[in-house]
C-alpha cells in the first residue's frame, strides 16, 4: 500500500472531517450566497451539484486509467484497488450528475430526458463503467481480474475521450443530430450552452469553484476510506495465511 496503516488512519480521519465541513459550507453557499438566476430561478442552483459531480466523475475515471496503466506495468493489488474504488466512486458521481441534470431538465426542457448527443454519450459512458463490474464479477482469479480490469479501464477511457470530443465536434457543426427530436434537441444544446456561458456574476463563479473543490475533497475522502478497507482486508488475509501455515505444521 501507499502508506502505513497508522498514517492511513490519520489521513482518512482528516479527510472525513474536511469533507463533512466543506459539504455543509457548500450547501450554505449554494443556497444563500449564490444569486438567484434570472430565467431559471432557484432550480438553477442544482447546477452547482451537477457540474461539481461531473468534474469529479471525469477525475475518477482518469485516476482509474492511470491506476490501470500502473497495474499492467507492475501488477500490485494497490493499483487494482485504486482503479476499482475510483471507478466505483466515479460511477456514483456520474449517476448523481445525470439525476441532477434530469431534475433541472424537467422545468427547463419540459422533459426528464432527451436523446441528444451529449445525453446519449453520457449514457454510454455510464454503461461502459457499469460493465466494468460485470467483467470483474466474471473473473475468479485475482491476478487475472486485476489484469483484465486494467485493460478494460484503459480501453474504456478512449470511449470517454471520444465522447467528449464528439460532443464538441457534433454540436459545433450542427446542434441537431437526430431527426425526430430536432427541436427539443436544439433546445437541450442551447440550454446547456446558456448555462455554461451564463455565469453572469462573480458570486456564481465562486459558488461553482466552491462546489468543485467540495466534491473533489469528498472524492478523496471516499477513495482513502476505500483504500483503507482494502488495506485491512490484506492484513487479515496475510494473518490467515500465517495461521494456516502454522496449523499445517510449519514444515511446509
Amino acid at each position: 500500500m501507499f502508506f502505513t496503516l497508522p498514517r492511513m488512519n490519520k489521513i482518512v480521519r482528516v479527510l472525513n472531517i474536511l469533507a463533512l465541513v466543506l459539504l455543509l459550507i457548500n450547501i450554505i453557499v449554494v443556497f444563500f450566497y449564490a444569486p438567484t438566476e434570472r430565467t431559471m430561478g432557484n432550480v438553477q442552483r442544482i447546477f452547482y451539484f451537477h457540474v461539481g459531480t461531473a468534474w469529479v466523475g471525469a477525475i475518477a475515471f482518469f485516476v482509474a486509467l492511470v491506476a490501470g496503466i500502473f497495474y499492467l506495468r507492475k501488477p500490485q493489488v494497490k493499483w487494482d484497488t485504486l482503479g476499482l474504488s475510483s471507478v466505483e466512486i466515479g460511477l456514483v458521481f456520474l449517476t448523481i450528475t445525470t439525476a441532477a441534470g434530469s431534475v433541472w431538465g424537467r422545468p427547463a426542457w419540459n422533459t426528464w430526458w432527451l436523446w441528444s448527443p451529449r445525453l446519449t454519450l453520457i449514457t454510454i459512458a455510464w454503461l461502459v463503467y457499469a460493465a466494468y463490474f460485470m467483467l470483474r464479477g466474471a473473473v475468479e482469479d485475482a491476478e487475472k481480474r486485476g489484469r483484465f480490469a486494467a485493460i478494460y479501464v484503459i480501453i474504456s477511457f478512449i470511449t470517454i475521450i471520444m465522447a467528449y470530443v464528439s460532443i464538441r465536434v457534433l454540436r459545433d457543426i450542427h446542434p441537431v443530430v437526430f431527426g425526430g427530436t430536432a427541436d427539443t434537441a436544439q433546445g437541450a444544446a442551447e440550454g446547456l450552452q446558456e448555462f455554461e456561458g451564463g455565469l453572469e456574476s462573480m458570486r456564481m463563479g465562486l459558488t461553482l469553484l466552491m462546489s468543485t473543490i467540495t466534491f473533489t475533497v469528498i472524492y478523496l475522502a471516499w477513495l482513502f476510506n476505500r483504500m483503507r478497507l482494502q488495506y485491512l482486508k490484506d492484513e487479515v488475509d496475510s494473518l490467515k495465511i500465517r495461521v494456516v501455515t502454522r496449523l499445517q505444521g510449519g514444515g511446509t
Binding site: P117, T120, L121, I124, L127, V128, A131, M134, L135, Y152, I155, S156, I158, T159, M162, A163, S166, V169, L170
Partner: peptide, 12 residues
C-alpha cells in the same frame, strides 16, 4: 462489454 465501448464510434 463491447457495445457501449464502440458506440462512440458507431454514432458518428
Amino acid at each position: 462489454l463491447l457495445f457501449p465501448i464502440v458506440l462512440p464510434l458507431i454514432l458518428p
